[in-house]
Design a protein around this nucleic acid. Structure first.
Length: 462
RNA sequence: GGCUGGAUGGCAGAGUGGUCAUGCAGCGGACUGCAACUCCGUUAACGCCGGUUCGAUUCCGACUCCAGCCUCCA
């Protein structure tokens, strides 16, 4: 039985799709004005694992993840650069796709862009205005009327009156109520916008997601996801807009991935603890980064550090060491084993990847044990390990690829082979001094020699 | 101040009312010329104070501390 934690009810619930066998899932994607940072990667990888697993469970998944490609931050950055905002977003969307591919994040089925859905956005705002759930202010902006939506706060568990206490009153306030938020921003002067019944302008951020999700998946759909920092106000506002417009429940299940921290604080540019995906990938293997992101449960915070990356590195080395020497391709994966059952039980329990990993380690242990005694079984276990790991998007390389290459180290395989051959001769001559000298030389090249019964192998020191 | 989540062995990180997480590191042994890899064995934890219970790290309450959200944020 598949159970998913639902932020709306704050409990783990048995998951039941609206239509048997099918799942519609919408995840808030990226505002594309810069390179992806590790926090973005966390979200992308978390929902990549979710969708991979749901598909493995036999569901036909329609995964929709939007791109916010019109926004004040984008326009400001474009202005700084002196370029068209669409040139800026095109560039960073391409960069985002590159980073996703590096991290083995599968593309969503639909990737709607805000600028491609202006019609739906305008239609939804029109409907809200007609229903008296929104109003046009004096300057042409259109605001959502929070007061007219009694359920406001049901997702983030905030009380209407407490929100009023905390709300900032801005100078020159045009809102009827400080809690109201913008649906349509008037922009008569800057030349970036679209015509609308309320004049030339641009959509607010929250309405984009309401329009794109209901447009792609229907008024009521199965799962809505995103980072926990979006829960309020973004997701709360989405619920308000969508349910006010459609008079039906919006998403059935809300999933929120935990934050990525650095030095126990949220990663942010102002704290100067900000890491982009591509700068980390200059020194660490993408699979190592991916492992780090799924070694903790998706709802828990992850504290990023060099140490945690090194730990993920040794863990992957253990996996690949165990796969070394196995014939996976021609072996048939073990089916219906206790390992597989335990793995699925862990994943069925709200995608418990840490527990799933503990099962993978049990398989590793069994492989290492069986390598000598029952090579056929070892191969079958190896195939099982790779099959299950693929659901997490790891162990996608071969042992040789992973253990013998490194993004930050270049090796000359021919030279290594020559040195190993020379050492083999020295060892045959029992010239231990020379053999150790050669091994030290290899070590200086970041190459670790491993002697086995059938000759000496090597790997890169990480 | 309000709301939400958390506090587990040296580190990372699951979970459970009574028996084992798991990985890294450590310790003892096997293998090895010595290492590395691997194997076998092994030490070690549940923030603090009460309560419920035959029994609580797990349930309940108070407290302390930490983080996130309350403003753009994955």
């Amino acid at each position: 039985m598949l159970k998913i934690y639902n932020s709306l009810t704050q409990t783990k619930e048995e998951f039941k799709p609206l239509v048997e066998g099918k799942i519609g899932i919408y995840v808030c994607g990226i505002t594309t004005y810069d390179y992806l940072h590790l926090g973005h990667a966390r979200m992308l990888v978390a929902f990549d694992v979710v969708t991979r697993y749901l598909r493995e469970r036999g569901f036909e998944v329609n995964y929709v993840r939007n791109i916010t490609d019109i926004d004040d931050k984008i326009l400001n950055r474009a202005k700084e650069n002196g370029e068209l905002f669409s040139d800026l977003t095109d560039r960073f969307i391409e960069a985002m796709h590159e980073d996703e591919r590096a991290l083995a994040v599968l593309p969503p089925d639909v990737e709607p862009r805000a600028t491609g859905h202006i019609t739906e956005i305008v239609d939804m705002i029109k409907l809200l205005v007609e229903k008296d759930m929104a109003y046009r202010a004096g300057n042409g902006d259109v605001y959502f009327s929070v007061m007219n939506f009694p359920d406001y706060g049901k997702l983030s568990k905030k009380k209407m009156d407490e929100l009023l206490d905390g709300a900032r009153i801005e100078v020159g306030e045009l809102k009827k109520d400080p809690r109201d938020f913008v649906l349509w921003k008037s922009s008569p002067d800057d030349g970036v916008g679209w015509d609308s019944p309320w004049g030339y302008g641009r959509p607010g951020w929250h309405i984009e997601c309401s329009a794109m999700s209901t447009c792609c998946l229907g008024d009521n759909f199965d799962i809505h996801g995103g980072g926990s920092d979006l829960l309020f106000p973004h997701h709360e506002n989405e619920v308000a807009q969508s349910e006010a417009a459609t008079d039906t429940q919006f998403a059935n299940v809300w999933m929120h991935n935990g934050p990525l921290r650095v030095d126990n604080e949220k990663m942010s540019k102002s704290l100067d603890n900000f890491f982009t995906v591509r700068e980390i990938l200059e020194t660490y293997d993408a699979e190592v980064v991916r492992h780090l992101l799924i070694a903790s449960h998706y709802r828990s915070p992850i504290n990023y550090s060099e140490q945690s990356l090194r730990q993920s590195t040794s863990i992957l080395e253990r996996f690949y060491n165990s796969l070394k020497g196995l014939d996976i391709d021609s072996a048939k994966s073990l089916t219906n084993s206790r390992f597989e059952k335990a793995f699925f039980a862990a994943m069925d329990d709200d995608f418990n990847t840490p527990e799933a990993f503990s099962v993978l380690f049990e398989i590793v242990k069994e492989i290492n044990k069986q390598k000598e005694g029952d090579p056929v079984l070892a191969n079958q276990l190896g195939a099982l390990l790779v099959r299950l790991a693929n659901l997490l998007g790891i162990l996608q390389s071969t042992p040789a690829e992973f253990l013998r290459s490194n993004v930050s180290t270049d090796v000359d395989e021919q030279e290594i082979d020559q040195l190993i051959a020379a050492r083999k001769q020295a060892r045959a001559d029992k010239d231990w001094a020379l053999a150790d000298e050669i091994r030290d030389k290899l070590a200086a090249m970041k190459v670790v020699v491993e002697d086995g019964a059938d000759g000496s192998g090597w790997r890169i020191e990480r």
